[in-house]
Amino acid sequence: MTAGMLSPSLIFVLTGIFGLLLLATSTVGVAIAAARAFSSLGWVTALPILPELKARLRTWWIMTAAFSTCLILGRGMSLAFLALVSFLVLREYLSVTPFRAGDRVGLFVAYAMIPLQYGWIARGHAEAAAIVPIAALAALGAVVTLRGTAQDFLASSALVIWGVLVAIVALGHLALIVSIPASLGYIAGGPGLLLFLVFVCQIGDVVQYIAGKTLGRRRAVPGLSPNKTVAGYVGGLSATALAAALLAPYLTPIGHGEGFLVGGALGLLGCLGGLTISALKRDLGLKDMGRLLPGHGGALDRADSLVFSAPFFYHYLVLAH
């Protein structure tokens, strides 16, 4: 896929996304100016959400610019971008997990799975996602055989396999989606499908965050994620379903009605992904996975809604269309 072959609907949606960002940035700018003016008049205005929104938006601009540039530059650049995402997610995961000196070879195995997975996908081997976790387990088996001691094998290999599954195999489905060739029905090709998935999941996250901060009272799952509210989940889920229903005919072979249902499923799986990563963070005693993305946290804090929705979307497309 080269720049000359980009579909008009992809360009249209990308333009719309930048329009949304512009709108959000100016709204927050006006809100910050208004809050400053009111507080200088002596009226009490406490809007602690504003500075965080500003930081989040800044990061959104950078992420959106990098993502859309790679989409426009073609499949090779998209795969390189997604491999970098896998690396960043794996690095921050391994940086916070309790590893011991003897497990260092296991960490190597995890990193080595990135070129394996993306190399295979680049060569059109879609089964990469199925073989990579097994390859990782085989490598860990070889390592434990050479070390000759089975102590803590399950715990340390489970740590590695967890990282490989989330950072490389699950998120690697984004690379499989972008590799789907443009053909009958797939009007905007792989880039259109990837843009669709990422946009509907991320808009769900954004609405979930804003609704949770402004409307939410009742905490949905206090044991896993103290900041998530029922209102947030309802808002995020509806936003994902509506955005999917609206955009599906332009970027995917799916119609409006089916798009709504697929969007609902993507939204639910997005919530489940977020909660699964929340459970991991809670268990490790962390609020965020890292500090790579100011305002958001780590790379996995931003990508957690894609962990289950990307594999679902890929297999749904392959099986149903």
Partner: peptide
């Protein structure tokens, strides 16, 4: 790269 290790790993 802890004391005694030979090959460094990329971690934050």
């Amino acid at each position: 790269l802890p004391k005694g290790a030979v090959v460094p790993l990329p971690l934050t």
